[in-house]
Design a binder for these strands. Sequence first.
RNA 1: GCCCGGGUGGCGGAAUGGUUUACGCAGAGGACUUAAAAUCCUUGCCUCUAACGAGGUUGUGGGUUCAAAUCCCACCCCGGGCACCA
Length: 866
Amino acid sequence: MTPYDHKKVEKRMRTLWKKEGIYKTKEDISAHKPKSESRKSYVLDMFPYPSGDGLHVGHPKGYIATDVYSRMKQMQGYRILHPMGFDAFGLPAENYAIKNKIHPKKAVDKNIKTFKKQLELLGFNYDWDKEINTTDPRYYKWTQWMFIQMFKKGLAYRSNEPINWCPSCKTGLSNEDVEEGKCERCGSIVEKRPVPQWVLKITDYADRLLQDLEGLNWPESIKESQRNWIGRSEGLLFTAPVKDTELKVRTFSAHFEAFYADTFAVIAPDHPFLPKLVEGTKDETKVLAFADELVKKRAVAGFDELKKPEGIFTGRYIEDPIGNGDLPIWVANYAVADYGTGIVKASCHDERDFAFAKKYGISLKPVLFPEDETAREKVEKLEVCFTDMKKGILSKPKEFEGKRAGDFRKEIADFAVKNGFAERKINYRLRDWVFSRQRYWGEPIPLIFCPECKKSAENSKLQAPDSKQIQNSKFQFSKGEVVNPGWFAVPEKDLPVKLPNVKSYEPTGTGESPLANIKSFIDTLCPECGGPAKRETNTMPQWAGSSWYHIAYCISENLKSQETISKQITNSKFQNKVKNWLPVDLYVGGAEHATRHLIYARFWHKFLRDIGVLNTNEPFERLLHVGLIMAEDGKKMSKRYGNVINPDDIVNRLGADTLRVYEMFMGPFGQQIAWNADGMVGARRFIERVCRLREKILNSKSQDVLQPQNTTRGLETLLHQTIKKVGEDIEMFKFNTAISQLMILVNELEREEYVSRDTYEVLLKLVAPFAPHIADALWRELGNKKSIHVSNWPTHDPTKIVFHRVTMVAQVGGRVRDQFEADLEAGEDAIKEIAAKLPSVKKWLEGKAVVKTIFVKNKLINFVVR
RNA sequence: GCCCGGGUGGCGGAAUGGUUUACGCAGAGGACUUAAAAUCCUUGCCUCUAACGAGGUUGUGGGUUCAAAUCCCACCCCGGGCACCA
């Protein structure tokens, strides 16, 4: 492969760009500029976690895309912000460090260096002045400050409830970190463990997170994932006394239409209320022991094993006010403690309840039936479980007898509320965000605990009696108020709370963070009373730093400032910067973040808006996800399979421009696709053709081949079509068709004896976003002093796109019989006349009667015959 | 089980009611060359036919339409997400 030395060209161009500073972000903090001058485009990639393996060719696909996009935007006159940074806290970095016996900080620094070197080889237009690193104390000072604001607003609370615990990673996990009951990182089965945790009340934002999805320009699939994840369901909350006790029980039901069928209730085996419920019953110990066993079983059981119903009678009954008598309460393995109230009234109109009752001989009483008589009989005889709450016909209560349940959902709810059985309630599947990790490599949680202050706080406040707490709590017993007695935020002047540099940072496995062993870190003074106090030793999860990094890029200078954050954020300069860049106009990254990072960041952003730091509701206006590049064998690229392709090798052999063009040309951007080494040849050839076209340029201006040619496909038309299509396709992330259009143009230009300089320059500009090195090099060879990347994007002339002659299709009976040329906009009669004379059409019309003629202007004529 | 995508040549894909297979890769034939590489040109779904042609063909089956890859119904397969969430 000859004619150009990509190594030389690419190196030379990158040096020039650096020298000329063409990728420096243009800030515009004056609010007075006319709109056209301050058009901005904030284009963001999901920042990488700098792993020790470096990049493979799959990683940069998204980065190339945003690079192409932002280059075009810049040429179109937008101020662009296109930054890059590193998300380097968290388990992977720490595990890598432990495995390689190197301190996480050192490992991260080293890996970032490698990453940056690799990224730079690809010729991205990042403004490295904006680089951020979540593990930089100047960065996490802000992360900690934001956490403190949440703490002060009561959005961070201390919980003692059992949480997901990964025995292998030796840390608590959030609900989002668990997949099919397994740790998302290492695949170990997750246990429930009662470890004291800091939890963020993301559920307070559930409704807004759900509602605001509607206005976002995001892939429908991701919106749908988030809707499912938030899992809003409207239902009824029933309250009833527990027989022979002072206790009351609340149960939630989203499918309440057949609530007259309830004959028993189930409680989760790990429900914190269970011990209190069975207190004083005959089989108290037996029940608790059995429940314990169920919990343990559930912790190790595979997913499918949970389908087998198992349980035990608690010895207690609900006195159901509906008049169904006393409902026995059972412990059931399928009941979930932390959804709804963890206790559910059960009936034959639920698959799981039905199976459970059948197994343990609990009586059932159907009140909902199919219309069909024989089917109805089966339900009456309890042979089948009937659950259709839409089409089912009710037999009870009297008020709704014979009615279709689905048509009266609202009325049934009104009825239950009016009679005092229940109140309306909206429940979410979303759980609060478990925010503590018992690991070393994370942001220290900036809180201090003072035992003295806790005592006085508790003394000053008499413990509320149980009954009251029942009224106020989601659960039936005290969950502890959300005031965190004895806990205080680290005063702002003392931020950041730096992660101590230690030798031993391996997880303890005791539920304590490794920081708990460092006396010099723990011991401190109480910010409230000045007495001896202890620091929180847990760290934040991997997702903390990434929850606000889109903001960090806008205020990168602020991160270096010595001023307090509270003061900085009220500064009008800060406010202007934030207003000028946010929201992110285009956000590109992997779809795997649908229900984690993308929910957390939205939550965090909304919170910061609520406290006045931001003025936008949502962080990411438009989102696109990049399809994975698979290895040639169709598997994921991984060291394990030995199928990794390193971009450095490609850059070395064929050049960054070739790699970029190839990755953009492979297929639709969002689609998963396998690497094909052969395919790269096409990309390289395309670039070489663009180079070779230079020889066809005439310096004399008089001979401009852009003069309209006497053909239907004039070059000028093609050129303007290409300008239009490439611009539109890049805007829509349809890079593959943009490139194919460029190829068509190049093929056509090759056929010409001469190419005008103007045409060639337009071509180079259109190629520039994809192949920035060679395009700029060729551009400068033409004598241009400034980089092509700061030139103006060409605009198409709509009048020049129109053909003068068009190719028409002649059909007979809907079948194509011939094609012919005709004048643009030619009328039906003229076309009919031409078409009817064509021999191949004539042949098919012979002996037939034309019933109808269909005419589509500039496209076809169709004779419908009989 | 529920919810999203998707199924088009040998391969990646294009076309969102109007010529199926743009563009690229691989293949075959040719030109140039002492030769090779590179480059350029031609060709390129299946069936029937000596040929001209004709018919078929966008996962399968049906429907709407002058006309369907595209719209509607049913089914099959692949990929992804969610899942004892009451």
